[in-house]
Design a protein around this nucleic acid. Structure first.
Lengths: 201, 201
DNA sequence: AGACTTTTCCCCCAATCGGGGGAGGCGACG
DNA sequence: CGTCGCCTCCCCCGATTGGGGGAAAAGTCT
């Protein structure tokens, strides 16, 4: 794709510090043509269409909005733009990122040079899914994550079952699996641990 | 305190992007002499003692470490340095921030100019506690916070009672008060809400 | 094909939870 | 002085939880 061409990059994040950080990081790169930032999904979409960036760096949580949704919106509204999802402290499943149409996923925890390299790789057509899933977080199955999400809202097993169209027995089963995998004893601790691991918004 | 003098600032955060963001933001300010960054509590302490910054900007969560603890460490290891605590998305009680010896607290959500102004205010001896306490967080009594902390560890009311030398009945009473005040139904949701409000770390 | 994981469902049972009620003591604030 | 919030303790009760057991279908990986 982009070979001898310099890249345009769009940064989507609700924190100004992140904007400045990326701007400082990226404008120093000789292969970056320009770097613009959006603070909301709507702004991101608008900028993407007007600006046609090669790469959109999208935070997993942009205010109240979901990074994966913004990713999907950019993908459909501006097909030429490839999306790199970045996470604050937590992790996301590579499959979920792919499902949203992302071309890559990395953690903000990575050193600057690594993030920059990831942006460049995305821009040149190479997919990047950095944090090879390893922690206890990754061992949670999709179903278990769904259940965990609902547990964090204070829902009972019965309510979760109704929501997910499952028997309360099954919900309890998934909940117990989550407790085992996260090494916690109950819902309260599971929520705390999930927050710590960045599994919840 | 610092009048005609330009300020040295230490940024403590585990995310490089935040470092770059603050660097870009602060080095543009004419009243900033220099801006250095630390990625861990130990590094922060070391830099604080060697560098004697006027202001230390400390994230509420630095990797696995607690921002308030780093704040305390800086305060005792380098009394001349005043600390500005910053939060990612959540909030913290101003009282908790004060207890840790912080001279101020703001949210990363603030616009750049506001954050910069807060840093400058801290450096010139003015305390800054931006999100004026009003929410449900501040209404929690000390006992209720203790109970909430222990609930987040997965402890049962009986265990909490043993820890705090209270009857399980009393613990249950405090727990119920917490639920009422945070407008949640149970422990799991209370933990999630407490995290969101920055009551836990 | 066998091992493995995931998902789904069921039962039993003790422990825990959370709301409701009541009660007394304390200190602050007006 | 009365009220109000905080802290402490107690009981009852139904709902919920979480561990133990078993079972079956589907898919993946080797």
């Amino acid at each position: 794709m982009a070979d001898g061409r310099r890249l345009r990059v769009l940064v989507v994040d609700d924190h100004d510090v992140v904007h400045w950080g990326f701007r400082l990081l990226l404008t120093q790169q000789p292969w970056v043509e320009r770097c613009v930032s959006a603070r909301t999904g709507a702004e991101a979409l608008e900028l993407a269409q007007r600006f046609e960036p090669h790469v959109a760096v999208v935070d997993l949580f942009v205010g109240d909005e979901s990074g994966t949704e913004i990713c999907s919106a950019i993908r459909s509204g501006c097909p030429g733009t490839r999306v790199l999802l970045i996470s604050g402290s937590g992790r996301i499943s590579a499959t979920a990122a792919r499902a949203a149409g992302a071309a890559g996923f990395v953690s903000k925890d990575l050193a600057g040079a690594d993030v920059a390299r990831a942006v460049r790789s995305i821009g040149t057509g190479v997919d990047v899914f950095a944090p090879t899933e390893s922690g206890p977080a990754s061992r949670l199955s999709p179903r278990e994550r769904e259940v965990l999400d609902l547990i964090a809202t204070g829902a009972t097993n019965r309510e979760i079952g109704a929501t997910l169209h499952l028997s309360p027995y099954t919900v309890k089963e998934h909940a117990s699996s989550v407790y085992r995998k996260l090494d916690v004893r109950n819902r309260a601790e599971a929520v705390r641990e999930a927050q710590r691991l960045g599994l919840l918004a």
